[in-house]
């Protein structure tokens, strides 16, 4: 028995979600009185991998191979499944990231494992089943999922789980699984990374704006507010439909689901489909000129006012606050 956790890297660096899943996996391992083993694919320096020992990881399998420089989900899934078999893992943990969503169902299929995607709790282990909580019905409900298979695959929802330091010492081991050539069926042609931008699904603070902003030319203040807060920017569906903002920024039932610590909604009415994507945010601030806007009903803090007046003042106030702290 052991818990295997897949650690993603971005150009050789581990991000917050990597430490989240590491910490989650090691807490599960603790519960099960077993060890948490990490698996990393691609070129990541040992010094970077060694950081995982701060989160309870006692062993890291590292798989490096020239063919694995870019993400090939069939090959990556085969490697992670092979790692699970080698380590006798009965629980495999991944981040519910874009890549994790492409990998976890393949790994689960290979291992005939029950899969829970987007977990928000540590599992509870019963004699013949395991229970994990996740959101369902587009965050309108929290569901308890029961897994009955011997092996379980769980993807952790970003930002849902507090990272906890737990220092152990980790040994790094080269792992050279056999990978079939038939696993290399996709070719990555191009990666475009907006390096200065904070990734929306992982952001701790999100500044989002809707049709109340009137047009794309008014997004300067939204970006500035996001900048001051170190936040990602987002928008409502009509805004991306109109081409004011890219589709990748659209949150809601048919867009991205976010669960940041702070979600600031500016000029967004709060339609049920929008709320479905943001309701698991820890704190919600709404700025809207209409006191009857439904968004206020689910907000923690609200300002009834004109965005074009409030946002510049808020930027100024935050700059002063940041300057003093």
């Amino acid at each position: 028995m052991s818990v295997l956790v897949y650690i993603e890297n971005t150009e050789g660096l581990l991000k917050k979600s990597a430490f989240e899943v590491a910490s989650y996996a090691s807490q599960i391992a603790n519960l099960q009185q077993t060890q948490a083993v990490a698996i990393s694919i691609g070129d990541v320096a040992d010094t970077e991998l060694q950081k995982l020992e701060n989160y309870g990881i006692s062993k890291v399998l590292t798989v490096t191979n020239d063919n694995l420089k870019s993400f090939i989900n069939q090959a990556y899934a085969s490697i992670i499944a092979a790692g699970a078999q080698k380590e006798g893992a009965d629980i495999v943990v991944l981040s519910n990231s874009f890549s994790g969503k492409g990998l976890a169902p393949r790994i689960a299929t290979k291992l005939e494992a029950g899969l829970v995607s987007g977990a928000i709790s540590i599992p509870t282990f019963n004699a013949d089943s395991t229970e994990v909580k996740r959101t369902a019905f587009s965050s309108k409900a929290i569901a308890t999922v029961t897994i009955t298979s011997p092996i379980k695959v769980i993807t952790l929802s970003p930002n849902a789980f507090e990272v906890e330091e737990h220092k152990v010492s980790a040994q790094i081991e080269n792992f050279v699984p056999e990978i079939a050539t038939t696993d290399f069926n996709t070719i990555v042609k191009e990666i475009v990374r907006a390096t200065d931008k904070i990734s929306l699904p992982e952001a701790e603070i999100v500044v989002s704006a809707g049709r109340g902003l009137k047009g794309p030319e008014n997004w300067g203040m939204i970006e500035e507010l996001a900048d001051v807060l170190g936040a990602a920017t987002a928008c409502s569906k009509p805004v991306s439909d109109a081409g004011w903002r890219p589709h990748a920024e659209h949150v809601g039932q048919t867009g991205i689901v976010v669960s940041p610590n702070l979600y600031i909604a500016i000029g967004i009415s709060g339609a049920i489909q929008h709320l479905a994507g943001v309701s698991s945010s820890k704190t919600i601030v709404v700025i809207n000129k209409d006191p009857e806007a439904p968004f206020f009903k689910v907000a923690d803090y609200g300002i009834v006012g004109d965005a074009f007046v409030v946002v510049p003042q808020l930027i100024a106030a935050l700059k002063t606050y940041k300057g003093n702290s």
Partner: peptide, 14 residues
């Protein structure tokens, strides 16, 4: 074209 955290990736497959 698929989304990745903070960007996008273009890939081909037969």
């Amino acid at each position: 074209e698929r989304e990745i955290e903070g960007g996008k990736e273009v890939l081909t497959a037969n």
